[in-house]
Simulated assay, not measured.
Amino acid sequence: MRYQWRAKDHTIEVTDTNGVVVASAWVELDLRAEHEYRAYLHGEVVPEYRRQGLGSYMMNWMESQAHQFFATLPNDRPCVLRIMFTDSRQDAVELYEKFGFQFFLAEDEMHRDLKQPIPSISLPTGMNFVPWSPGYAFQVYNDAFRDRPGFPNWTEAVWRQNFTGFDTFRPELSLMVMAGEQPAAYAVSAVESNQGWIVQMGVRPAFRNKGVGGTVLAEAMRRFKTEGLDTAALEVNVNNPQAARLYERFGFVLVKRVTIYHKVVR
Score class of each variant (00 low, 15 high):
96 Y>E: 05
107 E>V: 11
110 M>R: 08
140 V>A: 05
105 L>W: 13
147 D>F: 06
90 Q>C: 03
91 D>I: 04
112 R>F: 03
96 Y>P: 00
144 A>P: 10
94 E>H: 08
131 P>G: 03
96 Y>Q: 03
125 T>S: 05
124 P>V: 09
107 E>Y: 06
129 F>N: 00
143 D>Q: 15
91 D>Y: 07
143 D>H: 13
145 F>P: 01
115 K>Q: 13
143 D>S: 14
110 M>S: 00
93 V>Q: 07
91 D>H: 03
123 L>C: 04
122 S>E: 15
101 F>S: 05
111 H>S: 09
106 A>I: 05
141 Y>V: 09
127 M>Q: 09
99 F>C: 01
101 F>Q: 10
142 N>V: 13
144 A>G: 10
127 M>V: 05
108 D>L: 10
136 Y>R: 13
107 E>C: 06
94 E>V: 04
117 P>E: 02
120 S>C: 10
146 R>Y: 14
120 S>I: 15
144 A>K: 10
116 Q>R: 10
132 W>I: 00
112 R>A: 04
95 L>V: 05
136 Y>W: 14
115 K>N: 12
90 Q>H: 05
126 G>M: 02
103 F>L: 12
125 T>H: 06
125 T>Q: 11
104 F>K: 11
145 F>E: 15
114 L>V: 10
133 S>W: 12
117 P>F: 06
132 W>N: 00
107 E>H: 08
123 L>N: 05
96 Y>L: 03
139 Q>P: 02
134 P>V: 13
109 E>P: 00
138 F>W: 15
105 L>S: 09
96 Y>W: 07
95 L>A: 06
109 E>T: 12
128 N>Y: 05
113 D>G: 01
128 N>M: 07
108 D>W: 11
131 P>L: 09
129 F>I: 02
103 F>T: 10
98 K>C: 02
135 G>K: 15
146 R>A: 14
131 P>H: 05
94 E>F: 03
92 A>V: 06
144 A>H: 08
114 L>T: 07
95 L>Y: 04
108 D>Y: 10
145 F>D: 11
138 F>S: 06
114 L>M: 08
135 G>C: 11
97 E>N: 02
112 R>Y: 04
138 F>L: 07
139 Q>C: 11
112 R>C: 12
139 Q>H: 13
121 I>G: 01
104 F>N: 12
139 Q>A: 14
119 P>Q: 14
130 V>F: 06
122 S>K: 11
93 V>S: 01
123 L>R: 01
89 R>S: 08
146 R>G: 07
130 V>T: 14
90 Q>P: 00
144 A>Q: 14
142 N>P: 01
124 P>C: 02
103 F>I: 11
125 T>R: 04
128 N>G: 02
144 A>I: 00
146 R>F: 12
146 R>E: 15
120 S>P: 01
128 N>L: 09
102 Q>V: 12
110 M>T: 07
129 F>E: 08
89 R>W: 05
90 Q>K: 07
140 V>M: 10
89 R>G: 01
108 D>F: 06
141 Y>M: 11
125 T>N: 05
102 Q>H: 11
136 Y>F: 12
116 Q>N: 10
